[in-house]
Nucleic acid binder design. Structure first.
Length: 871
RNA sequence: GGGCGCGUAGCUCAGUGGGAGAGCGCUCGCUUCACACGCGAGAGGUCGCUGGUUCGAAACCAGCCGCGCCCACCA
């Protein structure tokens, strides 16, 4: 070790992540470790496609958790020597990005219509080059070992080709079609959106009851509505066919107030006779239910509300041009004047809102492109049923299947400019429609001019092909051959349908296989108070702030440790625990690295690259002392357990177990026990410590890559970066049950001795004379508990297990008696409990033999101690 | 309306048939030559409620109370 490095080690008593992280990350990039060759087969390789963040996005806590999970598995598999690719890129995010640029234009006093489509799109590209993809840099702060040389974008040239290929493929198979149909119109983004982008919220409205006079009669039909303005587009009144009250009216007509239109009274099962008066106004143009009823009965579809949210001419002269809200006020006023409103009541119901813009959805009939999903869904259902795609935790499998079985057509067109313009061309001369992957020059039928469809595709249409489009599909690239299907996907459950299900469908249909083997649905990290983390609520916690304050390793450890199958609140304590762990790793390593003494020949031996040296210099570990046998055994047990936890996506327990092995067993016990041997320059313990350090650093590296890499740079066995060092494999031959039992006994005794001292108020530094009754104890027992066991003479004043404490002036007799009394009370109650249990015939007869045996042994132990103390 | 999940120490969460756990916080004692972001010792819980199954229930079953999320076209 160079003098300067040694000096650094000696002087830095605190680990400083800020100083280390950027430097280490640059080293990894320079090493090219994250950029694998496109070689080998997907079964042997390991690959992950990152859920592409929006170009407009900034790293939020969901990304940070998702990234920590992926990086843990990616790093573990890379260390295992698998050819590992973590592909990243960004999503063009149609609505969100267009909105950002439109806002900028507004600030300049302009808008997209001023610019025109071409100039606007160019402007968005410029914005993207300048401000987009900052999130990619933020992933680097987290330490994410993505292949930054293979970054993709859903609108890059190759990707657009893939999207068009898929569109045409689906069109040719008859799945994609154009239809005049009711859609969710988002007045905020001036576009149709899909069912999945709609969220229902509880809203209090007024429920108006309106009397519709029956033609040639003095009767009225009273209908109820929360949207009286839609009456202007009513084309029928419906009643339940079995409703006797209205049986005679079916086939007759009402007269629509304010308008005068004749409305047929029709019978439809959908109407609930129990609700209100049992009569329902039908507005096929502006209500999804009424639309269905209208189509069943061949009703006229009147459009009284336009895409701009204003009343059309069809609403009648008095209302044309009013906004929906103004029209509602006007209609209610007019009806009141005519005395046709029979009641008004507050009414709480759920109303659809746009997930994108937050505005209330306006159901409208419009000409849109749809994709039929049922046939695509069938093999995707089977793949999950048969666990070709395994969803964990398993309850999400049912959720996925239920949704897929009820799947409905997907509205894929959006009235935006930013996105994949739909690859359809219309010929105005001969009304031919051409679907093509590349722009055709002229109409094939008549040679006329062609005009491309104005609409773009839903953003999720392009995301749906992410796992194979990013690998170069439809070209037969080496990447596709080496890395598809990918190994696993991790995601929040909110995009299970929006994204995951669609990837499975397109993967099977176009890439010939499922896109990933496992889907891990991770928890949602909530704000500290249990509310949803959101920018608008002001409840967001910025992962970059956390990294600045505590380091990326601390945040990663904290997020993994707080992750769970259920949603959890963000825990500052867990992040702090990670920061403390990083510091403890640094300091325990300092202790080892500054004090080890190595045989020069051993230290210089070249360990073979690509395999874990069983000890420094490639020798074997041959632990002899009880503490060495114990810690080595515990090390291997921990490696086996942590590895298994990571493989089954149980990150919280993996982190917890690695933490407690290192902190409690390695630091609190083993290091304290072997300090004298280490300071003495014993080579054997040096070798063992370096071996333990190497295995511990490698085991923790996938969770906390920076601090472990930094420490590794000081390790004498280092031949290259830890990021590509072999991941430890548990060696069962080093497990040692006897040593574990013996050490547990010693530890237990030390604890009891310390507790005894504390309770009888012995000064912390005092060494007490004692005698041991029975076989010799391990030497470290006396040292760690501060007892001297070789004392001659002196009267025993108390006994703790086999240790008889001898009288000295420091011991307060009264305190000892008090302590003994307290212990006697405990023991009597334990004995009573055990006796009660063993006296229960049912217990002895039915409980497993070893449980009964254990209980007998306990009773025996307690009775013996009780006797000793009572003497 | 249907589905999923949660209610365990002051806080955040583990535990899922055999004597209640972790981290943080709290109390007491330690400037012990890796670390005070540390070391040692403690206090603290009728495991939401009520019934049931069992020799034995925090865990399994039923009901109830409270909370959250997802799906669903009842005006």
């Amino acid at each position: 070790m160079g003098d300067e490095r040694l000096k650094n080690l000696e002087e830095k008593t605190r680990y400083d992540p800020a100083e280390v992280e950027r430097r280490i990350f640059a080293e990894w990039l320079e090493g090219g470790y994250f950029h694998p060759p496109a070689e080998g087969a997907p079964e042997q390789n390991f690959s992950v496609a990152i859920p592409p963040p929006n170009v407009t996005g900034a790293l939020h806590m969901g990304h940070a958790l998702n990234g920590s999970i992926q990086d843990a598995l990616v790093r573990m598999n890379r260390m295992r020597g698998r050819n590992t690719l973590w592909i990243l890129g960004t999503d063009h995010a149609g609505i969100a990005t267009q909105a950002v640029v439109e806002r900028a234009l507004r600030e300049e006093g302009s808008d997209r219509l001023d610019l025109g489509r071409e100039a606007f799109v160019e402007r968005v590209w410029r914005w993207k080059e300048q401000y987009g993809s900052q999130i990619v840099e933020q992933y680097k702060r987290l330490g994410a070992s993505c292949d930054y040389e293979r970054e993709r974008f859903t609108l890059d040239e190759g990707y657009v080709r893939a999207v068009y290929r898929v569109f045409k493929g689906l069109f040719d198979r008859g799945y994609i079609y154009r239809d005049n149909y009711m859609v969710n119109w988002d007045p905020g983004s001036h576009s149709a959106i899909s069912d999945l982008e709609v969220e229902n919220r509880e809203v209090e409205d007024t429920l108006y009851s309106i009397d519709y006079p029956v033609e040639d009669s003095d009767r009225v039909l009273t209908v109820a509505t929360v949207r009286p303005e839609t009456m202007l587009a009513d084309t029928a009144v419906a009643v339940n066919p079995d409703d006797e009250r209205y049986a005679d009216l079916i086939g007759r007509h009402c007269v629509l107030p304010l308008v005068g239109r004749r409305l047929p009274v029709i019978a439809d099962e959908h109407v609930d006779p129990e609700f209100g008066t049992g009569a329902l106004k039908i507005t096929p143009g502006h209500d999804p239910n009424d639309f269905q009823i209208g189509r069943r009965h061949g009703l006229e579809e009147i459009v009284a509300i336009g895409p701009d949210g204003r009343m059309t001419e069809a609403a009648g002269e008095r209302f044309t041009g009013l906004t929906v809200a103004e029209a509602q006020t006007a209609v209610v006023a007019a009806l009141r004047e005519e005395g046709l409103i029979s009641s008004e009541e507050p009414y709480i119901h759920s109303v659809p809102f746009s997930h994108r813009s937050g505005e209330r959805i306006e159901p409208l009939i419009s000409l849109q492109w749809f994709c039929r999903m049922d046939e695509l869904a069938r093999p995707a259902i089977e793949a999950v049923e048969r666990d070709q795609v395994r969803i964990v935790p398993p309850q999400w499998k049912r959720v996925y299947l239920d949704w897929m079985e009820e799947i409905r057509p997907w509205c894929i067109s959006r009235q935006l400019w930013w996105g994949h313009r739909i690859p359809v061309w219309y010929c105005d001369s001969c009304s031919e429609t051409i679907v093509a992957e590349r722009e055709p020059s002229r109409c094939g039928a008549c040679g006329g001019e062609l005009r491309q469809e104005e609409d773009v595709l839903d953003t999720w249409f392009s995301s749906a092909i992410w796992p194979f489009a990013t690998l170069g599909w439809p070209e037969e690239t080496p990447e596709l051959a080496a890395f598809y299907p990918t190994s696993f996907l991790t995601t929040a459950r909110e995009i299970l349908f929006l994204w995951v299900a669609r990837m499975i469908m397109t993967g099977i249909e176009f890439a010939g296989d499922v896109p990933f083997r496992d889907v891990y649905v991770h928890a949602v990290i909530q704000a500290r108070d249990g509310r949803r983390m959101s920018k608008s609520l002001g409840t967001g916690i910025d992962p970059l702030d956390e990294i600045d304050q505590h380091g990326a390793d601390a945040l990663r450890f904290g997020l993994l440790a707080m992750s769970s199958t259920q949603d959890v609140r963000f825990s500052d304590a867990k992040v702090q625990q990670g920061a403390d762990l990083a510091n403890k790793l640094w300091n325990a390593s300092r202790l080892i690295l500054m004090n080890v003494k190595l045989d020069q020949n051993q230290a210089d031996t070249n360990a073979p690259q690509g395999q874990v040296p069983a000890a420094v210099g490639g020798g074997t570990i041959n632990p002899v002392t009880i503490e060495d046998r114990w810690i080595v055994s515990r090390m291997e047990a921990t490696i086996a357990s942590v590895t298994a936890k990571l493989e089954e996506y149980d990150f919280a327990h993996a982190a917890q177990e690695a933490y407690s092995f290192f902190w409690s067993e390695l630091c609190d016990w083993y290091l304290e026990i072997v300090k004298p041997r280490l300071y003495d320059g014993e080579e054997k313990v040096s070798a063992t410590l370096l071996w333990l350090l190497e295995r511990t650093l490698a085991l923790i590296h996938p969770l906390m890559p920076f601090v472990t890499e930094e420490i590794w740079s000081y390790h004498p066995a280092r031949r290259g970066h830890l990021a590509v060092h072999p991941f430890p494999e548990a060696d069962d031959s080093l497990r040692d049950a006897e040593a574990e039992t013996d050490m547990n006994d010693s530890i237990e005794l030390i604890r009891r001795l310390r507790a005894w001292r504390d309770l009888v108020d012995i000064p912390a530094a005092a060494v007490l004379p004692a005698r041991v009754d029975g076989p010799d104890l391990e030497a470290f027992v006396g040292r760690l508990a501060r007892f001297s066991f070789d004392a001659d003479g002196g009267e025993p004043v108390a006994s703790v297990g086999p240790v008889q404490v001898l009288a000295t002036g420091q011991i307060d007799g009264a305190a000892v008696r008090e302590r003994v009394e307290a212990r006697l009370v405990d023991l009597r109650s334990e004995v009573a409990r055990a006796e009660g249990k063993l006296d229960n015939d049912g217990f002895v007869a039915n409980a497993p033999a070893e449980v009964v045996e254990e209980e007998r042994a306990k009773l025996e132990r307690y009775r013996r101690e009780l006797e000793e103390l009572s003497e």
